[in-house]
Nucleic acid binder design. Structure first.
Length: 122
RNA sequence: CAAGUUAAUCAGACAGUCGCUGCAAAUUUUUUGCAGAGGAAAGUCCGGGCUCCAAAGGGAAAAGCGCCAGGUAACGCCUGGGAAGCGAAAGCUUACGGAAAGUGCAACAGAAAAUAAACCGCCUAAUCAUAUUAGGUAAGGGUGAAAAGGUGUGGUAAGAGCACACCGCAUGACUGGCAACAGGGCAUGGCAUUGCAAACCCCGCUUGGAGCAAGGCCAAAUAGGAACUCAUUGAUGCGUCCCGUAUCGAGUUCGGGUAGGCUGCUUGAGGGAUUCGGUGACGAUUCUCCUAGAUGAAUGACUGUCAUAUUUGUACGCAGAUACACAGAACCCGGCUUAUGAUUAACUUGUAUU
């Protein structure tokens, strides 16, 4: 089952800091930046950061968050045991939903390909 | 049909799959059921509730408001009325108290900007020879945002409320109105009081401060600490100042409150309907409904059908594609302001037809 609860979120300042300080993978694209780091748990976790500077209206910020979360939810079994931080850049809110998904879904695969030598999953 | 004015309503609908937040129930950790953004949730510009600050006291200062009456928990809001202004009209707009309490300012231009004044002009007199000096004048010219009532007749050296008629203005009574105010009616006055109070100011009314990160409870760590008794007149604090007022130093006895969690938290000046009162804002009455509570912050995604708009292809039956405004609750209400897609109704003006 694909579900998404508080277990899959980064909740505290410390856990954010850990990912920022020792990010093993960086994926930079035009509209966003993904940081990733291995954790010692089974779940994958994600934190989403969208600043007011980059996306002005609260409606669009919420929409981006929800779409990123949805994409993460559908792909989470591929990327177990990793902590992510998703940073939005300017212009992310201009994408339509379909374009949005095609942009992000492909990134999970590149994450796997980079991390694959180090990790085994059941 | 076109242009405009004023109100009101809606914010695509339904079904399925996966997911999130809260509540309830079961079973015990997973299921099932129910509920889950707005008219502006926005700007944070006003006004309250609620909470704490020391008993939230007195005075000064400061700030806000300002036609009248009503509504309201309250307001800088709303309703009705008055006045002034804008518009051809429907209608709209207004910081709309006081300038004879005092002070101040009025750029440039202009002769002069407020105890009036005299550049050109007009008139009189003198000199002198067509200009100068002295006086009178406020009709004409020019300047300005603004120039000390207007028009006409009489009058005069020329003129002037100097006099008269009409209009305007001021004051007083009277009439109407709760009042602001109104009155081509009455009396008095020859006209005084130029404008600016969004200059100081005066008058009237209002205002203590800070905010749910308020505040309360449970509580790892670490240092200060709390109660009682004794001593004392300087410091600190009460978020503008003064008055006023609270705390402190020593000894004894007790304990402490940051991370984190819980609470505050959603039943309320609540919504809907009926009847009654009121021009209306609104008030009263009875019945009925319960309708988000997140906290690295839920309310989403995908698919299908129908509906709306645009557009492409049309065999005029339809088929395909695209789009669907402004915008996201954070303690809660009442307003204001700004953003914005439609639809409907009433009214005004113009045109065409009958």
């Amino acid at each position: 089952m694909y579900y998404f609860s508080k277990k899959q979120k980064l909740l505290s300042k410390q856990s954010y800091k850990q990912v920022f300080d020792n990010a093993e993978i960086k994926i930079s694209r035009k509209y966003f930046l993904i940081l990733a780091r291995r954790n010692k748990q089974e779940n994958a976790k994600i934190g989403i950061i969208i600043s007011k500077k980059n996306i002005k209206h609260a409606v669009n910020r919420n929409r981006c968050k929800r779409l990123v979360r949805e994409s993460f939810r559908m792909n989470q079994d591929k990327i177990k045991g990793l902590d992510f931080i998703f940073l939005a850049r300017k212009g992310l809110d201009c994408l339509k939903n379909k374009e949005f998904y095609s942009e992000i879904d492909s990134q999970w695969n590149t994450v796997i390909s980079r991390i694959n030598p180090h990790i085994f999953y059941k």
